[in-house]
Design a protein around this nucleic acid. Structure first.
Lengths: 212, 212
DNA sequence: GACTAACAATTTGTTTACAATAAAAGAATT
DNA sequence: AATTCTTTTATTGTAAACAAATTGTTAGTC
């Protein structure tokens, strides 16, 4: 294959940095600075930033300039609500069409989660957590729904959430809840699956409001 | 800066044209052509297109170039599902917090709809239809949910849908269904409201599959 | 010392120019 | 006439240059 365009490289890199909070919310993204840092031209950076603007990952300042979108406390609560709506909706679609392979995939993710927590790899556990929910969305069989989920800044939301100092017990509970949802799904008990998912979210809400 | 930037002007204009199907899906958007047409520089067009790329309203061709995103039949069905999830979710949030004013606003929209259909203003009726659903989303009190709804290409979807030759009877049914949802909402009967909404969607699905 | 006006620098917005690539047109060969 | 190869044109990708606006700094005044 040929080399990808400079603008795409800049876009990918900036996006990753924002999503992993390597550049903090509300940070001003100076074109020249990043052009030098990523060794591309300023226009490529500008193009990347404009694309991210379309995605809502950066915003325009009132007097020009790009800033990393920040998630306010209000946003936080709203994203949680949105996430619940989307995930419960996905469960509704998934439960009658989910395949054995998909269930196996979900189980494997759960096992990874358990093992990583046991070994103390909490960053890895968070990754698995994210993956579990994304995979569930995939199982809905609805690409648009999945896209919407992915573009709802949920990764960012999730990262923020996991910043709140989790105890080992929190991880154990998460694990248990994931498995409860999965088990209900396996038994085609949609109502139980949804209920379990709601409980999972409810605990997240409590956790969220704990330390601010 | 006093007047709005050239890039913003180009963005606004191109976006409007795409959303109102003044440029057809799959059309290639040549930078130079639109630069001349909107009398801005090519880079401003490029910036506008890049932003629209982030929004998903245009796509990159395999060999470069921007193309208006097209909604396939599959997308169509998926967007309908997504829409149902989002709107039912919104109803759930709205029913306990909706204000008298908001209900009044919805009623007014319903009346406009009726009156416009009676007078044969079907484009206007479609606008009111769109407005009804958007307003309902607003009543959820969740900005993120509303944003998601608005950015799910539902306007485009709706336009496509209303292209299917509607009979006057279809409009009458739509009117009736809107009012049924609203009535249930007014009586705080959430389950009925949701059921009515589902029926509304179900009819849309039938209509959609009729003539393709 | 605090305030303000002039000036310097930084940073973004815009245009222009140029290089790289893809598409189209034409000529030559069979 | 059809096909391949070459040449030309069109279009995009990248970079540099310029203009406008914002921010920061210094010097002077009270």
């Amino acid at each position: 294959m040929k080399s990808e365009s400079m603008a795409l490289k800049a876009y990918t890199e900036l996006r990753r940095k924002i999503l992993t909070i390597q550049v903090l919310p509300d940070t001003r993204l100076k074109e020249d600075f990043w052009a030098k840092k990523l060794s591309v031209s300023r226009m490529s950076i500008r193009e990347a930033l404009t694309r991210l603007l379309g995605e809502g990952l950066v915003l325009l300042g009132p007097k020009g300039g790009y800033f990393v979108t920040s998630v306010t406390r209000e946003d936080f609560a709203q994203i949680r609500e949105l996430r619940e709506i989307l995930e419960l909706g996905a469960l509704n679609l998934a439960y009658e069409k989910i395949t054995k392979d998909q269930i196996a995939k979900l189980e494997k993710i759960c096992e990874s989660f358990t093992s990583m927590v046991e070994q103390g790899f909490f960053a890895g556990a968070n990754e698995a957590d994210l993956k579990f929910h994304e995979t569930l969305m995939e199982c809905s069989g609805n690409t648009k729904l999945l896209q919407t989920y992915l573009s709802s800044h949920i990764p960012l939301f999730h990262q923020q959430l996991t910043k709140k100092t989790h105890t080992e017990n929190d991880y154990a509970l998460t694990d248990k809840e994931h498995r409860a949802v999965l088990e209900a799904l396996k038994n085609k008990n949609i109502e139980l699956a949804k209920k379990n998912m709601q409980l999972h979210f409810a605990r997240g809400t409590v956790l969220m409001n704990k330390d601010l």
